[in-house]
Write a protein that binds this DNA or RNA. Structure first.
Lengths: 191, 191
DNA sequence: GTCTATAGCGAGATAGAC
DNA sequence: GTCTATCTCGCTATAGAC
């Protein structure tokens, strides 16, 4: 096992545990146990806990950028791409009901901690916002594309928060259906 | 200063700090310093940290029930009451941008901690849900009143999460305006 | 009812052997 | 690159004086 592989395994385990338990609640011992190394070995790969968080955020930024690039192709046209976006709520419904949205919950937690990586975590939100805005621009809504992007992002966040609180799968489906109808309506009716 | 007053001051300080910093991140020392007592004196009023959380949740349940009862009168009719509900996003916009929604962020945090009081915290959500559902029923939508209540609750949560992430006051106002339009549309168009 | 003092634990972090 | 051993700190919680 090379050092690089161990580092990546640490980041992946931390990524999962930060999502499931939260950043502050996840200890070095938790991550070490998940990876199968001792706590002491940790500091050969990371100087401090903050650095693991930064690596996890970078991993999520890369993963998000890759996913958006794939939707760019798979969605075909702007409306299809927007449907890809709302589709993640259904595809990830089990995880969302158990742990909420990984983007929103990390952003909220780091905000309360006043953590220095707070703004970096928000960049994940910004990736979605910019990508969604672009799709609405292509859909013929250049003037309020950003408002529409924020609206759709907000509705997705709200669905994740309440689905987590009430553990209601039917609620997710109903809201996703409503968002799909709304997306179809954006194209047909001008601002 | 009687014991009862000190206990109430502890609960009020904890309520504020749990909102601003999160439950897990708030230590006894933080609350004690805010109240102006020593840590040791704490255990005369509460046996454990969990008990303060329970007291804070009860305080918020009572405060929410009281607020909903006041809206029942101040709003006049169901539509006016729903407008009272979305109005809190504007009225509390500064706090929401700084710390998110007190209901949603506590619910999310306790979910990640798998805390035993998780369900009690969700009762605050349930108060809003039940109250909103009743207003939609009175508005002539008995069949989908709960769906409409969850929809409005979700949109509010999403607005709070994104307003906190992006610190965008204009976004809150735009979304609240959109929710007001949506509320007006609910009455005029049947399901 | 409030205080000081301290126990006990787990956290992040470091040193150094192998 | 991985380990064991250890340090220091802050936290929850307890004991007991006043």
């Amino acid at each position: 096992m090379t050092g690089k592989a161990t580092r990546e395994r640490i980041i992946e385990a931390a990524d999962r545990l930060f999502y499931q338990q939260g950043y502050e609640q996840t200890s070095f011992a938790d991550v070490a146990a998940a990876v199968g190394i001792t706590r002491g070995n940790f500091y050969h790969h990371f100087k401090a806990k903050d650095e693991i968080l930064d690596a996890v955020i970078q991993l999520r930024l890369d993963a998000t950028a890759g996913m958006l690039a794939r939707w760019e192709v798979a969605g075909g046209h702007p409306e299809g791409r927007l449907l890809c976006f709302v589709g993640i709520l259904v595809a990830n419904r089990a995880k969302i009901m158990a742990h909420g949205c990984p983007v929103g919950t990390l952003s909220t937690e780091l905000s309360k901690l006043e953590h220095r990586s707070r703004e970096d975590a928000n960049k994940i939100f910004l990736l979605f916002r910019t990508w969604l805005r672009r799709q609405f621009e292509l859909l013929g809504r250049p003037d309020d594309a950003d408002d529409l992007a924020m609206h759709l992002l907000a509705r997705s966040q709200g669905v994740a928060t309440l689905a987590n609180a009430f553990h209601d799968e039917g609620f997710i489906q109903k809201e996703v259906d409503a968002m799909r109808d709304w997306i179809k309506g954006v194209r047909t009716c001008l601002s």
